[in-house]
Amino acid sequence: MPAPWNDASRLMHIGIKGFELDHSEVPPANLVFLIDTSGSMDQSNKLPLLIRSFKLLLSALAPDDRVAIVTYAGSAGVVLEPTPVSERSKILDRLERLYAGGSTAGGDGIRLAYRLAEQHMVSDGINRVILATDGDFNVGITDVDELEEFISRKRSSGVFLSVLGFGMDNYNDDLMQHLAQNGNGNAAYIDSISEARKVFVEQVTSTLVPIAKDVKIQVEFNSSTVSEYRLIGYETRMLEREDFRNDKVDAGEVGAGHTVTAIYELTLANTDAGHIPPSRYQSTESELSSNFDDEFAFLKIRYKLPDAHSSTLVTQPVTVANYFDTVNTAPRDVRFATAVAAFGELLRGGRYTGDYGYKEVIALANDALGDDRFGYRREFIQLVRIAQTAEYLNDLLPE
Score class of each variant (00 low, 15 high):
residue 70 V to S: 10
residue 97 R to N: 08
residue 77 G to I: 06
residue 137 F to L: 10
residue 91 I to K: 08
residue 136 D to G: 10
residue 142 T to Y: 04
residue 72 Y to N: 03
residue 88 R to H: 08
residue 151 I to V: 15
residue 79 V to Q: 09
residue 113 A to G: 05
residue 80 L to W: 01
residue 86 S to E: 06
residue 165 G to H: 09
residue 114 Y to W: 15
residue 71 T to C: 15
residue 75 S to A: 06
residue 87 E to T: 02
residue 129 V to F: 12
residue 129 V to S: 07
residue 106 G to F: 07
residue 83 T to N: 03
residue 150 F to T: 01
residue 169 D to R: 15
residue 74 G to Q: 09
residue 109 G to T: 13
residue 106 G to Y: 09
residue 147 L to G: 00
residue 114 Y to F: 15
residue 120 H to P: 08
residue 119 Q to A: 14
residue 137 F to S: 01
residue 76 A to W: 12
residue 138 N to F: 00
residue 168 M to G: 15
residue 153 R to T: 10
residue 121 M to K: 15
residue 77 G to S: 04
residue 100 A to N: 04
residue 88 R to D: 03
residue 110 I to S: 02
residue 101 G to Q: 02
residue 90 K to Q: 10
residue 131 L to Q: 10
residue 133 T to A: 06
residue 167 G to L: 11
residue 111 R to F: 00
residue 71 T to I: 07
residue 121 M to N: 09
residue 149 E to G: 03
residue 166 F to N: 04
residue 178 H to Q: 15
residue 107 G to I: 12
residue 132 A to Q: 06
residue 89 S to W: 07
residue 110 I to L: 12
residue 110 I to Y: 01
residue 85 V to I: 05
residue 72 Y to G: 02
residue 170 N to H: 14
residue 118 E to D: 15
residue 92 L to D: 13
residue 112 L to Y: 03
residue 88 R to L: 07
residue 154 K to S: 05
residue 168 M to E: 15
residue 146 E to G: 03
residue 166 F to M: 11
residue 145 D to P: 00
residue 78 V to R: 11
residue 115 R to P: 00
residue 104 T to S: 14
residue 70 V to C: 08
residue 119 Q to W: 12
residue 133 T to P: 14
residue 77 G to M: 04
residue 156 S to Q: 14
residue 168 M to A: 15
residue 92 L to S: 07
residue 149 E to V: 03
residue 175 L to G: 11
residue 152 S to A: 12
residue 178 H to V: 12
residue 91 I to Q: 04
residue 93 D to L: 11
residue 134 D to C: 11
residue 90 K to A: 14
residue 157 S to T: 15
residue 106 G to R: 08
residue 174 D to Q: 13
residue 144 V to W: 05
residue 75 S to P: 00
residue 129 V to W: 02
residue 156 S to H: 11
residue 85 V to F: 02
residue 93 D to R: 05
residue 104 T to F: 03
residue 116 L to Q: 13
residue 115 R to D: 14
residue 108 D to Y: 10
residue 167 G to N: 15
residue 120 H to A: 11
residue 72 Y to Q: 06
residue 87 E to L: 09
residue 149 E to Y: 07
residue 145 D to K: 04
residue 101 G to L: 02
residue 102 G to Y: 05
residue 73 A to S: 14
residue 169 D to P: 08
residue 149 E to P: 00
residue 156 S to W: 13
residue 127 N to G: 04
residue 154 K to I: 02
residue 162 S to H: 10
residue 105 A to F: 06
residue 125 G to M: 02
residue 133 T to I: 02
residue 175 L to I: 10
residue 149 E to T: 04
residue 95 L to E: 12
residue 167 G to H: 13
residue 92 L to I: 15
residue 105 A to T: 09
residue 92 L to T: 09
residue 113 A to Q: 08
residue 150 F to W: 03
residue 136 D to L: 13
residue 141 I to D: 05
residue 155 R to D: 04
residue 127 N to C: 04
residue 110 I to W: 00
residue 163 V to M: 10
residue 110 I to M: 06
residue 120 H to M: 04
residue 70 V to K: 03
residue 143 D to P: 07
residue 149 E to I: 04
residue 170 N to P: 00
residue 139 V to R: 01
residue 111 R to L: 09
residue 105 A to L: 05
residue 128 R to F: 00
residue 148 E to F: 00
residue 149 E to N: 08
residue 130 I to L: 12
